[in-house]
Write a protein that binds this DNA or RNA. Structure first.
Lengths: 352, 352
DNA sequence: ACACGCTGATAGAGCGCTCTCCCGCGTGCT
DNA sequence: AGCACGCGGGAGAGCGCTCTATCAGCGTGT
């Protein structure tokens, strides 16, 4: 009965079937499909017809088994080394950050020409990390692109040890021999500092990202360094978690301790956006009273008013490059690690 | 030489190897690993030791080949039926929308307990669609979760025809026998309408989403319907594309034609955020002069000032449910399509 | 005339796993 | 004692594909 009910759900055609229909051997069909070696055009044609008539689609698993290629790459979003408290909230936070979307977008740009799809993996908690790792070891993906922020994240090391071809977004904290793409974060922060100084701001505070995140530290360091060069070695500074809400809280704290500040540099746009909101809540005008400079040039920079002056990080291009590097490593293994550092760019808008 | 250079890169252990070490047959090892049937505890233990000592990891492809399960599910982001002009910009736009992140987050919530990872696929252009489809037919994923917005999107139909287990986010435009999760969009819009009316707003305009998107149409219809019931059958209305920039343009147009309006309902928060920005640019106060109500309760609702009154769409829960439904369909096929409709909820904040 | 390369096609050996049979053994019932 | 039965374990047949080794046929050089 069930047979009669679904005539469409027949056993899918195999190479064998196609070969029989075309009157050739399995091997020949395989050659035609994979486009290798010379096959008589007439035979090619008849094979193609047979493929069409049988509705043949190669079986990915069977192919993977022998080629040892999965045809998929993992995009691993890795967290810190320790457990998070509220897993689900953290997850939403990670994925809702425009940064994540930009990475995904860039990865697609890099992968699309090769017909490869990214498998998304979250390696935030130890359990998830184990799982992701074993998934990769099982050969379900040929390599990993890792967005790892925390310096104490063991994921890059684990992947390397497991022999999984890996490319990181962001330099590794430890000096691992692994390819990566990154931004010259210090330079970017310097751009922001020079700009604020040029705008005549002399009581400037910073809202930094988590110190465990290397990019956050680099931005903070670069900013302080440049400001010191301008004769301002001591700056008020608050730490936040790269979220808008965190930025708001940090700004509020800063305002309590330094009500007279006239400039703020936030380590990303989300926090800058939060800072602007709080400044306004306190009756301060941006940029007249306080100039604000963000970082990233994400959608958050143009979401509110005033439009945010920010340091552009070309996340999409970086992610696309990360994908390309991984593809390259896969294509010809054995060469050393490549790292590509992108240069930031100041985008002046209305908030400064 | 290459042999000598990488002792670690040996041929990975197979079941056979483990069996030899443990002194049992392949079948027994397989049973232990998959936890089926009773195996003598002593033997189980020795197998486990052998697995550990050999560093055995099952080969996913080989397993898939015989089980006919990929152990992966696809998350398909599907676009309209036609080509987009600027592929890359559209892509960034899609992925940067908080909606996407929330869906991903929810999908993870639903999938994690089962150790399944989502494969991300973009089926925006015809070429990409073909590709995604063939990927699925090859059995690289066991089913698809489809975020399809445009009513003329052929993807759901194609997947159904291909026999790929599918669950949609958002009801299908055509009455396809396919499972889905959705929001009672009309009800949500009604909530917004009643609220604006209760606030005493009588010159209300709407910023609608693309008419090709069913959810957009439903929200518009529901809003108009409720307003008509309040004695306001004719409302100014502008269309936009669910982006902030689109919302800004729509608001600007609306303001030219109806400078006296005192309320705006936008079909999502991004557009509402844009509307607020433009209203402010025009020197209008929100909510004193113009009340604004958004839709979704995404991060955009709390990103700016004033905090947006909005209609909550529990995207994460919906996506998690979508994942669960798909898992369920996979676990026991043959049952009819399930659809789960979520109820919206009004979240009153400061913009109204 | 023969050896020789070259092209185009085939046969068949796996890839690593699951799963259906089947078998031997201990147990309880007649 | 004989027998059916449940249980733990092994043997081996594939799953659908790729790819190497092999071979037939056909000029070509000497």
């Amino acid at each position: 009965m069930s047979e009669a009910l679904r005539p469409a759900a027949q056993r899918p055609a195999t190479l064998e079937d196609v070969a029989r229909v075309a009157g050739v051997s399995r091997a020949t069909v395989s050659r035609v499909i994979n486009g290798i070696r010379n096959v008589d055009p007439a035979i090619q044609e008849s094979v193609r017809r047979a493929v069409a008539s049988t509705g043949y689609v190669p079986n990915g698993a069977a192919r993977s088994l022998v080629t040892r290629r999965a045809g998929a790459l993992a995009l691993v979003v890795s967290g810190s080394g320790t457990d998070e408290r509220d897993e689900e909230a953290t997850r939403t936070q990670v994925f809702t950050d425009p940064f994540f979307g930009r990475v995904v977008s860039g990865v697609f740009t890099g992968l699309r020409p090769h017909g490869v799809h990214p498998v998304l993996m979250l390696a935030d908690a130890p359990g998830a990390r184990e799982q992701a790792l074993s998934y990769l070891k099982q050969g379900n993906a040929d390599g990993a692109m890792v967005v790892s922020t925390h310096a104490d994240d063991p994921m890059p090391g684990l992947l390397l040890a497991a022999g999984v071809p890996t490319v990181l977004f962001g330099r590794p904290a430890a000096p691992l021999p692994v390819s990566c793409v990154d931004l010259a974060n210090r330079d970017g922060a310097r751009l922001a500092a020079d700009h604020l100084h040029a705008r005549g701001r002399r009581r400037v505070a910073t809202i930094a990202g988590p110190p465990a995140v290397r990019a956050a530290r680099d931005r903070l360091d670069g900013f302080h360094e440049a400001m010191a060069r301008h004769g301002m070695p001591y700056l008020p500074h608050a730490e936040a978690d790269f979220t808008q809400a965190g930025g708001e809280r940090a700004m509020a704290r800063l305002l309590v301790e330094h009500p007279d500040l006239d400039g703020v540099f936030a380590a990303n746009d989300l926090m800058a956006q939060g800072a602007v909101a709080v400044l306004r809540d306190h009756g301060l005008r941006v940029p007249e009273d306080v100039a604000v400079v963000g970082f990233d040039d994400s959608s958050a920079a143009t979401a509110g008013r005033p439009l945010l002056t920010t340091v552009r990080q070309p996340v999409e291009e970086m992610a696309a490059e990360m994908a390309r590097i991984l593809l390259d490593v896969l294509a010809r293994p054995g060469r050393g690690a490549t790292s590509v550092i992108f240069e930031p760019e100041l985008v002046v808008r209305r908030s400064s």
